[in-house]
């Protein structure tokens, strides 16, 4: 058995994760922010590992 097997498992796992996500919480492109946060005038609001809950 080679790494082709494990890499394929990883890709299948990712595909499963995305399928689950798109089924349960479909994205809405009409609510998308502007391309760049820099210069947008909007506050950064993404989740980050350094942030405590607010």
């Amino acid at each position: 058995m080679t790494r082709r097997f494990t890499a394929t498992l990883m890709v299948l796992g990712l595909a499963g994760l995305l399928a689950f996500d798109l089924t349960t919480t479909p994205p809405n492109p009409y609510k998308a922010p502007v391309v760049f946060a820099f210069g947008s005038g909007l506050a950064a609001s993404g989740g980050f590992c350094g942030a405590l809950p607010n």
Partner: peptide, 17 residues
């Protein structure tokens, strides 16, 4: 927390990390 709940209810494809 409100921020976490919002992200749990949104697609992973809208989460930067």
């Amino acid at each position: 927390a409100p921020g976490s709940v919002e992200r749990l209810q949104s697609s992973l494809l809208t989460d930067y990390t």
